[in-house]
Write a protein that binds this DNA or RNA. Structure first.
Lengths: 203, 203, 203, 203
DNA sequence: CATGAATGAGAATTCATTCAT
DNA sequence: TATGAATGAATTCTCATTCAT
């Protein structure tokens, strides 16, 4: 499945990938058959296989694309001298991606992760994305933030805060009033509250 | 599937549900057939349908049970006068459930939510669970915490922090070193860091 | 696919195996689909799989049965003190099987042989059959026959003479006049000519 | 597919046939798709059908070619005055063909024979090949060999001896030690033993 | 002459589910 | 109550073949 694609072919492949992405997140990967993807783009089931090797490759391609887009968005940020500012920028960008491309996000971060024998994740881009976050967290710790946290801990807490928001958002669990633009409200939360969930109990 | 169950019937239904849950969690919902559930409890495939309407109802039932268990765990907590302490207790209990019953959790909080026409979630227990959290958050706000946050906001941030941790944990994305007990490490994080992601930038 | 079969089940499995055998030799193994086998016995395609694990197992079963039948026929012979007489008896029995069960024979001796890593043939019965022939040939050599031949050679020549007859017979290449009973004529040839193709040229 | 071929067309058809033969022999007729044949000669699948009517015709053509090659090899022999010598020469040539072109041989002599209404075999060359053998046998009988055999019988025995060797050889059933050159060993057997399987029982 | 696009038919399986007994 | 038998519909994927260009 690499050949040299003509523009038309690329376009058709795109069509298929998009249809698949939509269906996958609407109904779950395993409830979507190649047939249904074909039907959605008005192709015969057999034709799908001229543009996509198989279901596996289709999923991999979507995931890889997702990581690439996310990576691009995160990379275009300037590195702010204030590591917390930078980390927040990253979070904003990450969430923006999650909201704009929630179908991708679903495929990228909700499926059980595959780890190859050497301990790495075999989908291109995954490690790169997490690496950026990790570096930013590391800088923040060096600058005295996240008192008492290891890099792992700080990274995990930061990541999971944003991931939690996106995950609930994607599955429709944002507790905001129906009628409002969920996405917009969601995205306002991030810069306002990221890394600032402070509940100052007397302890 | 609403008949009046005799105790024996209830017990058998129980057996089936348990088998289903175990299989689902071990192999993923869509990789488990009704046949395999039947085999696991030594019933004929047909008999399953005496106790369970179909796969869908089976899943719904499991979800409902999940909410019930979670509700029980959260309810048995004493309400600490310090609302932050209580909220943290709730978080610990919630996460404990998520780790112990991650297979339930997956079914309960990762699938797209179904909302009925009147705006409620038709699965029994769901609203109750969230209600408890909401109340606790409300108390905390009244006590002066979460400065500047609406109840919705504070509730969403708190929930998604924990949900994010669990979600990443369930899909295998905890960035801790292999070999450690992921579950244990994960659970240590919660009381240590919940509601305390503070990054004091100079701003 | 072992379970304990009830008599009815055994019978149905038999039905399927027989249908498969007929189709296989009439049209070639790879031109016969499970669907067609199902159709031939008036079952739904799915039902086939209650009685047979898959196409592979079906073929293996048929082959194994074939070797068993052949082995039985060859085993019931008394060992004649004259090794040539005995060898001829074996040949007659072997050919009788080949003619009576030519569909089996086709599956057993015309498909490319599978040899496992340890150099043996993994289908039960194959080695046993050849072993009997080999022993008989060995006795004959010890008794002074097959002058100048190794056991391998003598065994190969004897075997291939009969196999050649059967192979041509099965594929319809017996050059006897149409209308005669090909099978009968064929079988007469064996005792008359086996091991006696003597063309004493003056050289 | 009878058009008048230009030399270029003939050449291309040749290319396709050769590719097909190679693939067929390497992987078995039913494991080779028209696509793969096309790919092997760097044609588009569609183009194949300009030079070959369909898979069936392709096979028929290969068979016909096979008979032609075999016929050529057998024809180039001088007719030895000793009919047994000549018959042996034919056998050697026939087996040489079978070993060199075993893929052809398989197609030519293992598939069920098609006989047309007038009792002849509709594939060109088949009758001619057998005719040569038949004649040679006839001469041998006239010269006093094959005592007591009809032409049919003698012809059938001779043919099936060689065919048996080739058939077992092709399906991998030569009982010679692995590591030796099976083909070479096989071919040595023919002149050594053809028409000389003598087992002189005391009887 | 040549090809890319396209497809209907079919391959081996599997599954949720029903039904007669 | 319980089950074995049965199946229609679905799954992923391949293939021989046609046709418009």
């Amino acid at each position: 499945m690499k050949k040299d694609w003509t523009p038309e072919q690329t376009e058709k492949r795109r069509l298929i990938l998009d249809a698949a992405r939509e269906l996958f997140s609407k109904e779950g990967v395993s409830n979507v058959s190649m047939r249904r993807i074909a039907a959605k783009v008005n192709y015969s089931p057999a034709l799908i296989y001229r543009y996509v090797k198989n279901k596996e490759e289709l999923l991999d391609q979507l995931r890889t694309e997702g990581y690439q887009i996310l990576l691009n968005r995160m990379s275009r940020l300037e590195v702010d001298p204030d590591p917390i500012k930078y980390l927040t920028d990253l979070a904003v960008e990450y969430s923006g991606f999650g909201v704009d491309y929630w179908e991708y996000y679903d495929l990228m971060f909700h499926m059980p992760i595959q780890i190859s024998e050497d301990g790495t994740v075999p989908v291109k881009g995954y490690e790169a994305v997490l690496g950026m976050v990790r570096n930013a967290v590391e800088q923040a710790i060096k600058a005295g933030h996240f008192a008492g946290c290891s890099v792992d801990e700080a990274m995990f807490m930061s990541w999971s805060q944003i991931h939690g928001l996106l995950s609930l958002y994607i599955s429709g669990r944002t507790p905001f009033h129906i009628g409002e633009d969920r996405a917009k409200v969601m995205l306002q939360e991030i810069p306002r509250h990221f890394l600032r969930i402070v509940a100052t109990g007397k302890k």
